[in-house]
């Protein structure tokens, strides 16, 4: 299995609900708590596993606002696991999820240096690295109804811009979506082979030229002359 997310940049509205749901679930999950520094002051900071950034793509007037949520890409060739000296960082063979054993991490920051996506953040309180678990404590929980065995960010997304599934299965929704919509990896040139796939925005449909009747044409002309 190769579990991961498909994120639709066309429909994401940048509401930060995925990030908030992620923090809410994971702060009491297996790697929790995700501690904060100065949470009620003017410069709050803390470990956060899903950052949403907004970009302007293209030049005005042909520009587009693109919201890009980024969490761990669960890379197939995960350098963060290779560089870890303690063995705290590991990639699960059965489903490809990259996790950190909180009992082994010594907080040397090297894995966060090796990650190009900024997916790893040091917890200011425990001194250990925290990262997206793909809600490993949700997706296999048989106590939950089957429809809810998905990552918290996917369940909460109001525009269904996030889809969770197995990229090894060619008939899964994630595989189909990334095939149909030309899904992309971020920064593929580094060779980490990230699993999470981003669907680029679709081209807007060309609007037909509004046909102007002869009478309207004359009216517009008259109006323009009167305005002068």
């Amino acid at each position: 299995m190769k579990l991961g997310l498909v994120i639709d940049l066309d429909t994401c509205v940048g509401c930060h609900a995925c990030g908030t749901a992620c923090k809410q679930w994971n702060t009491s999950g297996t790697i929790g708590p995700l501690s904060d520094e100065r949470p009620y002051e003017k410069d709050p900071s803390g470990s956060w596993l899903n950052r949403i950034r907004t970009y302007e793509v293209g030049d005005s007037p042909h520009s587009k606002t693109v919201n890009m949520p980024m969490s761990c890409m669960h890379c197939e060739d995960a350098a963060c696991v290779t560089v870890c000296p303690t063995g705290a960082s590991y990639k699960r063979e059965e489903d490809g999820i990259v996790l950190i054993d909180q009992d082994k991490c010594m907080g040397c920051n090297l894995c966060s240096w090796a990650c190009p996506y900024g997916a790893r953040e040091l917890d200011p309180n425990s001194g250990t690295m925290k990262k997206c678990t793909l809600c490993v404590d949700r997706i296999y929980d048989e106590q939950l109804p089957e429809a809810e065995r998905q990552p918290a960010c996917v369940l909460t997304c109001p525009t269904s811009s996030r889809v969770f599934g197995d990229f090894d299965d060619p008939d899964s929704q994630v595989s189909k979506l990334s095939r149909q919509r030309a899904g992309q990896q971020l920064m593929p040139e580094l060779g980490y082979n990230p699993v999470n796939t981003y669907l680029p925005p679709r081209n807007p449909k060309q609007q037909d030229q509004i046909k102007v009747s002869a009478v309207q044409g004359i009216k517009q002309l008259v109006n323009r002359i009167i305005n002068r």
Binding site: A88, K104, C105, C108, S126, G127
Partner: peptide, 9 residues
């Protein structure tokens, strides 16, 4: 190290 008690690992 932020968590030196695990340095031996």
């Amino acid at each position: 190290l932020a968590n030196p008690k695990n340095a031996w690992r």
